[in-house]
Amino acid sequence: MLENEANPTFSKSTGLPRKRFYRARAHSNPLSDSHFPIPISPQNVDYSVHYPQFFPSSERSDSSKKIQFADIGCGFGGLLISLSTLFPQTLMIGMELRDKVTEYVKERILALRVSNPGQYQNVSVVRTNSMKYIPNYFEKGQLSKMFFLFPDPHFKEKNHRRRVISPHLLDEYAYVVEVGGIIYTITDVEELGDWMKACLENHPMFEALTNEELEADPVVKLLSSATEEGQKVARNGGQTFQAVFRRIAPSL
């Protein structure tokens, strides 16, 4: 429960959030790891915390820049770091469930900002369970790229519902990704690669990129090389399986 707040979240006159409401769930199971604040809605995400140079104050209007790339299960953040300089004007965020790992990525970004003045201002990370709280962070059609690099495989059939790509979760990703936006996935587990590809192929709101399009996209090259997991696989000479799909409008 929120601590004693009686004010409506939104100002009647401006339609904007009155305060930055971050909720802390008093009732969550302490054994579980859901003890992190969750923004009530995307309007309540405090950009000034994540991107202080772009947002000196926490005031934001509808026309303000919004986060456009999301790296889901970003791990140690290698991809974000590479993307940051490739797209210096694009705001991007990593979502990571593990507390320590998230802290590490935070420190890493802060250190890079210090040693490279003016750079890495467009990247940040947040600790959250992406499977539950994506709609709390992003509005409809807000994202232009979403990344799922080397996600946990969850081999057992009954655990397939824990996979970060699944038919139902794709409905949510289709909601936050704009038409024309792209979902990038890669894994070194063949079975998972087949699964992710099949889920995307069977979804009415995604279509595969052609080989030419894959060639032309500079981001595709980063999938197997930019992250820590990718580098580990490459060192061991492992094979990788990627699926890159574009969000399309559903046919009526």
Binding site: M1, L2, E5, T9, F10, F21, R23, I40, S41, P42, P135, N136, K140, P167, L170, D171, E172, A174, Y175, H203, P204, M205, P250
Partner: peptide
């Protein structure tokens, strides 16, 4: 029967 894939909106604001 083929599933409902298109989300129109999320109504977010409740805190419980």
């Amino acid at each position: 029967l083929d599933g409902a894939h298109e989300i129109q909106s999320f109504c977010l604001g409740h805190t419980e």
